[in-house]
């Protein structure tokens, strides 16, 4: 696995919020097509790491490289275009837009027709618009959401809203997909289905996935590599077996 291409390389990443060191000297390497887990107790800084990777918070120190290119300092929309997409812990769909429009929106951020071709409905606009509709429907098929494509996002059941968030993120054409607790609020059956689909998505689209989860068991089942955070610092990093047997991890999760 280590011989394959590196997609994301994080070196000595840290951020301060006032006097609080929220994340401290984090190192992480994610390879092409890898499914990587980021776990840790509540408040360990997992979501903060996501916010730094996507440009929402500028890191105080360290570097983030996407396929060798340094991306810290870039704005969120630039980073999205370079190929990092994400979902949210609390669902943040565009609730008053239809399911299809949610996907078209992220697909559209990459289409290269502009204001004027859009206004004057030039042929290029039509061709691209059709291609985008087509792609949106194919993406929706991955999660069997095609039949719901004209519904408003807010009218979807909870589990489907979570899935739609993943589809919308795929519309960004990511090289790296960040999933922030995708199984939160799901029952065990739904969670199992979701995990299977995540694996399918990774293989079908050839992307790398970084997954935040609370549930150790779940992450252990599908991730190839795991980093454990505790109080903003890296506690351990390795394969699921290594993590499971790491005494530091066990004490952080279960207490001394």
């Amino acid at each position: 696995m280590d011989t394959s291409k590196v997609v994301l390389e994080v070196n000595d990443l840290g951020i301060n919020f006032g006097g609080l060191r929220a994340v401290d000297s984090l190192d992480m390497v994610i390879h092409e097509n890898e499914l990587y887990g980021l776990i840790g107790p509540n408040g360990a800084g997992k979501t903060t790491v996501f916010n730094m990777l996507t440009g929402v918070y500028p890191p105080t120190d360290g570097t983030i490289k996407l396929e060798g290119q340094v991306i810290n300092g870039k704005t969120p929309h630039e980073i999205a275009k370079l190929g990092i997409a994400r979902t949210f812990q609390n669902i943040r769909l565009f609730k008053n837009m239809t399911v299809k429009e949610n996907v078209l929106l992220s697909l559209g951020a990459h289409a290269d027709y502009n204001f004027f071709t859009g206004i004057f409905k030039l042929p290029k606009f039509h061709a691209q618009e059709l291609a985008m509709e087509d792609e949106a429907m194919r993406l929706l098929d991955v999660f069997e959401l095609r039949d719901d494509s004209e519904k408003l996002a807010k009218n979807l059941p909870y589990g489907k809203q979570r899935e739609l968030e993943i589809v919308r993120a795929l519309g960004v054409h990511p090289k790296l997909l960040l999933l922030d607790e995708p199984a939160a609020g799901m029952n065990p059956q739904e969670t199992e289905n979701l995990m299977r689909t995540i694996d399918v998505v990774r293989k079908q689209f050839g992307i790398s996935i970084l997954l935040i989860e609370h549930d150790m068991k779940l992450v252990m089942g599908i991730c190839e590599k795991i980093t454990v955070l505790n109080y903003g610092a890296m506690l351990a990093c390795g394969t699921p077996e290594e993590i499971q047997n790491n005494p530091h991890v066990i004490s952080a999760y279960l207490g001394e």
Binding site: T54, V56, T75, P76, H77, A80, K81, A85, R86, F88, R92, L93, F94, K95, N96, M97, E101, L104, L105, S106, G108, A109, H110, A111, Y113, F115, G118, I119, R168, A169, G171, V172
Partner: peptide
């Protein structure tokens, strides 16, 4: 324009959730 075009969709998405729109690549 607002219903059909991608710039119109971008406007609606920014109106709903600016942060999420940014992260989907909307300028």
């Amino acid at each position: 324009y607002i219903k059909k075009t991608k710039m119109g969709k971008a406007m609606r998405s920014v109106a709903e959730d600016e942060g999420a729109a940014r992260l989907m690549g909307i300028n």
